[in-house]
Computed example of a mutant assay.
Amino acid sequence: MVAALPTLHGGAENSSPITTEHFEGTALAPGIVHLTYGTRIEDRQARRSSIWRRDTAGEFRLYYHQATPVPDGTPRP
C-alpha cells in the first residue's frame, strides 16, 4: 500500500497524484510497527498513522489506519 501511494490519485481519475513525505516507523513489539507519514493531494494535506502487523506467512498487513486533515496554513513538521 505504501509503495502504491505515489501512483494513486486524489479521488478523481484526472486529479493530481498523491505525494508522500516524512515517513517514520517505530517497532511497538515483535512483528508490530507504527508508521507515520504525511500526504498531499494538490493543496490538501493530511497526517497519517497506521499500525502494521506480521501475519503467519511473515507478510506485514495493515491492521489500523487513520488520516487527519491538516488545516490550511499549518506549518509542515
Rank of each mutant, 00 (worst) to 15 (best):
Pro17Gly: 01
Glu24Tyr: 07
His65Gln: 11
Glu21Asp: 13
Pro30Phe: 10
Ile18Thr: 05
Gly73Phe: 03
Ala3Cys: 13
Ala57His: 14
Gly58Asp: 08
Gln45Leu: 12
Glu21Trp: 12
His9Gly: 03
Pro17Glu: 01
Asp43Thr: 13
Pro75Val: 12
Thr56Lys: 13
Ala57Ile: 10
Ala67Ser: 15
Ala46Val: 09
His9Ser: 07
Arg61Val: 03
Ala3His: 10
Ile32Ser: 01
Thr36His: 11
Arg54Tyr: 05
Val70Asn: 00
Thr68Tyr: 03
Tyr63Ile: 11
Ala46Tyr: 04
Glu42Val: 13
His22Met: 15
His9Asp: 06
Pro71Tyr: 00
Glu42Phe: 14
Glu13His: 08
Pro17Ala: 02
Glu42Thr: 12
His22Thr: 14
Thr74Arg: 03
Ser49Val: 12
Glu13Asn: 11
Gly58Glu: 09
Glu21Leu: 12
Pro71Trp: 00
Gly10Ile: 02
Ala57Arg: 12
His65Ala: 09
His34Ile: 08
Gln66Cys: 08
Gly73Met: 07
Pro17Tyr: 02
Leu5Lys: 00
Ile51Met: 05
Ser15Thr: 11
Thr74Phe: 07
Thr56Arg: 15
Ser16Arg: 15
Gly31Asn: 07
Thr7Leu: 14
Gly73Asp: 05
Tyr64Ser: 15
Ile18Met: 14
Arg48Leu: 10
Gln66Phe: 06
Thr7Glu: 10
Pro17Val: 04
Ala57Cys: 14
Tyr64Ala: 14
Thr39Asn: 15
Phe60Cys: 05
Gly31Leu: 06
Leu35Ala: 03
Ala3Phe: 08
Pro71Thr: 06
His65Lys: 07
Asp55His: 06
Arg54Met: 09
His34Trp: 14
Gly10Tyr: 01
Glu59Asn: 13
Pro69Trp: 10
His65Thr: 10
Glu42Cys: 11
Thr74Cys: 10
Ala46Ser: 09
Gln66Lys: 10
Thr36Glu: 14
Pro69Tyr: 09
Glu24Gly: 04
Tyr63Phe: 12
Glu21Gln: 14
Asp43Phe: 06
Leu5His: 00
Tyr63Cys: 11
Leu8His: 07
His9Glu: 06
Arg40Met: 15
Leu62Met: 06
Arg47Gly: 00
Ala67Pro: 03
Ala27Ile: 12
Ile41Ser: 01
Leu35Lys: 02
Arg53Ile: 07
Leu5Val: 05
Asp72Ser: 15
Thr7Asn: 11
Glu24Ser: 02
Thr36Asp: 11
Ile18Tyr: 02
Arg47Lys: 14
Leu8Tyr: 07
Arg44Val: 08
Ala46Met: 09
Ile41Gly: 01
Ala57Lys: 14
Pro30Asn: 08
Asn14Val: 07
Gly11Lys: 05
Arg44Pro: 09
Gln66Glu: 08
Leu62Gly: 02
Trp52Met: 04
His22Asp: 13
Ala29Leu: 05
Asp72Ala: 15
Ser49Trp: 09
His9Leu: 06
Glu13Gln: 09
Ala67Tyr: 04
Asp72Ile: 12
Tyr63Leu: 13
Gly25Cys: 05
Ala4Tyr: 11
Thr20His: 04
Thr26Asn: 03
Ala12Thr: 06
Thr68Arg: 07
Ala27Asp: 10
Trp52Glu: 00
Gly58Asn: 09
Arg47Asp: 01
Leu5Ile: 03
Thr19Arg: 15
Arg76Leu: 07
Arg76Pro: 04
Ile32Gly: 01
Leu62Lys: 08
Tyr64Ile: 14
Leu5Ala: 01
Ala67Lys: 09
Ser15Cys: 13
Phe60Leu: 06
